[in-house]
Design a protein around this nucleic acid. Structure first.
Lengths: 192, 192
DNA sequence: GCCATGTGAGACATATTTGTCTCATGAGGG
DNA sequence: CCCTCATGAGACAAATATGTCTCACATGGC
């Protein structure tokens, strides 16, 4: 509601800006606002014009991350087909947001205010429901709790993003590596 | 060499101190030295007497983490038996250090100075060798690279430690959850 | 009781980061 | 051509974190 006529200049793309900020903050969580700004290709002044302060920036990143995750979950149609396929679709859809996620996952300060953003809870519920569905259909094992599988998914996405960022894993293998490990595990399978 | 007669007072146990500091820093990576000190049950002055500054503290934590990992790997006898069993032993042995590890994994600043502590490299090599051994023996699948499996192991340990710290996973299930997921995956197995 | 020595509390200066401001520039639209 | 507006550069104070002190206290050995 605040900006009605938005079609003038706005040379810095807010989304792209947030994404670059996330990349820098993923590399070094204690980055100065100046470092974030420079890494984003803008000046600290401009960064400050877009986000009132460090907190506001983090909040915006959180908001964006949640938003992208929800979009990914919608696009992945978690309720359709086998749970495994749905999970694969989810990981593929969420890949573009992996860097952002990697940062947010480690940004445990968010949980410090003991007021966990309800958006995360919603996401957790959806993912956990997916795992639960897989368990009830007999596709997934039942000795690993949905809560742990959810946590592990986040962790692996973070590890994957980091590994790609660090050159230890090729970007094109990202979703395959995560999905295959999470679903099938490291053990070689004898069946189909 | 500096303290020869060390057996007098020394009421604060350096190892325990480091562990508590790690816990606090895992919860909030940007903790003030004052917060770290209070969370460790000592004053900032005393903390400062043990570690010259924040850097020195982090370095000490890093050193301790590496040391504990190496000890765990030694104790796990990675070369003996099946790779899967060796991996299970490793996870069990490394569990006490999981909190510390969780912090160090996210403390990517360490890698900023582009001078990655050689200790980590040594550990990476050992873990990767374990996965490679498993692949060559036909026990592990070959489409997931040892480098990725190594990364994933660290990531899952971090996630596990965090989940336990947060009460989403029972502490007693820690090593089982990680080992089973990493080795067997979420998919239900039909075979033995 | 007297003396080590490790400790907590807190003062203090310094360093770093942050938030706010001004001013000049440059690009785009009218 | 002029006007508007986002921006970069940088000055500046305020807030915060850090490093270094001093001093009082307590505990344990003598």
């Amino acid at each position: 509601m605040s900006h009605m006529a938005y079609g003038c200049l706005m040379s810095v793309d807010r989304d792209q800006l947030l994404r670059r900020a996330a990349t820098q903050l993923t590399r070094k969580g204690s980055s100065t606002l100046d470092e974030v700004a420079k890494a984003s290709g803008i000046s600290r002044a401009t960064l400050h014009r877009h986000f009132a302060g460090r907190d506001a920036l983090i909040r915006a990143l959180e908001e964006l991350g949640i938003q992208e995750c929800e979009a990914a979950m919608d696009a992945a149609r978690l309720g359709e087909g086998s749970a495994g396929d749905a999970l694969r679709r989810l990981i593929k859809e969420i890949e573009p947001a992996a860097g952002l996620l990697a940062f947010l996952v480690t940004e445990n300060q968010l949980f410090e205010g003991d007021e966990q953003h309800e958006g995360w809870t919603r996401l957790d519920v959806r993912v956990a429901a997916l795992f639960k569905r897989g368990q009830e259909s007999g596709e997934f094992r039942i000795d690993l709790t949905p809560a742990w599988l959810t946590e592990a998914l986040y962790g692996l996405i973070g590890s994957g993003a980091w590994a790609v960022l660090d050159g230890r894993v090729a970007a094109k293998d990202f979703s395959y590596m995560i999905a295959e490990l999470l679903i099938g595990g490291a053990q070689r399978r004898v069946e189909s």
